[in-house]
Simulated scan of single mutants.
Amino acid sequence: MNKHLLKGFSAPLCLAFLVVFLVLPGVSMASSKLTFAFSDKSPPYSSSLDERAVGLFPDLVQLTFSFIPGYTTEHVVVPWSRAQYNVRLGLTDGLLTYPSEEREEYALFSAKPLFTQDFGHLVYSADNPNIGLIESATSFADLSSLTVIVEKGSQWEEDNIPGYLERVPGRDMKSMMHLLMLREAGDFFVQPAEDARFIARQLGYSKKLKVRKVDFIPNSQIPFHIGISRKHPSAMNVINQVDAVMQSPEFQSQLNTLIESYR
C-alpha cells in the first residue's frame, strides 16, 4: 500500500483497518492450518499417490474439517513410525489412529471414534468345498476341522484366533490372498472387509471373494480417533470442535456414506 494513502487516516481508523485486514481469508491462515500425517503404505486406509495422501483416512479427516470453517487441513504421507514421532514432537499437528495409552501421552483425542476397523469377518473363496461349514459356523469351534491363513508375526491373530486351528502363514495380505484363492492352501482368513475387498480387486479375485460378518471373533473392534498433538496451542479447541461436529446428523450421514464406499 502506498504511504500517501495512509496520511489521512487517524490512528484508531488505521488500527481498525489493520484488524479487518488480518482477519480476511488468506491473510492469517497459518494459525488455522492443521497438518495431518498418514502412513504411506497402509491401503486402503492411507497411501501415497503422486506424493499425495489418498485413502479412507485422509478422506475422513477432510470430511470432518469441511464442517469446521475455522480450520483447514494439509495431509502428508510418511512411514507410520515417523508420523507418530512427528506428532509427539509437535512437528505435525494430527493423526487418525487408535488412542493407546502411549499415544494419549502426546496427543488429545476425540471422544468418539471417527472410524471403527472391524476384524469380525471371515474371508473365503466362493469355490471352497467347505463353504457350507464356513457360512453356517457360529463359533471357531465349528471351524476346527478347517485351516486358517494368518499373517506371519501378527500378535492380534495369536491372541484372538484359537491355537487348535491349523495355520498356514502368509508374509502379508497379498500373499495371504494368493494362498487362499490361487494355491487353496487354507479355507479362510480373518480380516476387515475393506482390506479384503481392496486386495482382491488388486489381484483380480473379486468375483471369487466371499466375506461373512460374524460375531464370535474377540477384540474385533478397533476404534480410530482424531488426535491432535498436545504441543499444538489450540489442541483442546480443535478436539472440542471435532466432538461437536460428530453430533451433527448431516455429518454422520456423509460419514457413513464415505465409509460404505470403501466396503
Rank of each mutant, 00 (worst) to 15 (best):
F115P: 13
F67H: 14
S175R: 10
F119N: 12
E194G: 10
L63Q: 11
T73R: 06
G55A: 09
E166Q: 11
K213D: 12
S229Y: 06
V148A: 10
G90I: 06
L13N: 05
T147M: 07
R183P: 15
E101C: 07
P169K: 00
S66C: 13
E105F: 01
L60R: 07
F251Y: 13
N160A: 08
H75W: 06
E102N: 04
V78Q: 08
E250R: 02
E260P: 09
K231S: 09
Y98N: 15
S248I: 02
L143S: 00
G163R: 09
V27Y: 06
E184V: 01
S154N: 11
L56P: 14
N240I: 04
A107T: 11
I217D: 00
S145I: 08
A16H: 02
V150H: 00
K7P: 14
P25N: 02
A83D: 08
A185G: 09
H232S: 09
A185K: 09
S32I: 02
V148Q: 04
T72L: 09
P43C: 03
Y106I: 13
D93H: 03
D215A: 06
R171M: 15
Q254E: 12
Q117L: 06
P192E: 10
E260T: 03
P12L: 07
G227N: 08
I222F: 03
E104A: 05
D142E: 08
V19I: 05
L133N: 04
D159L: 13
S125R: 03
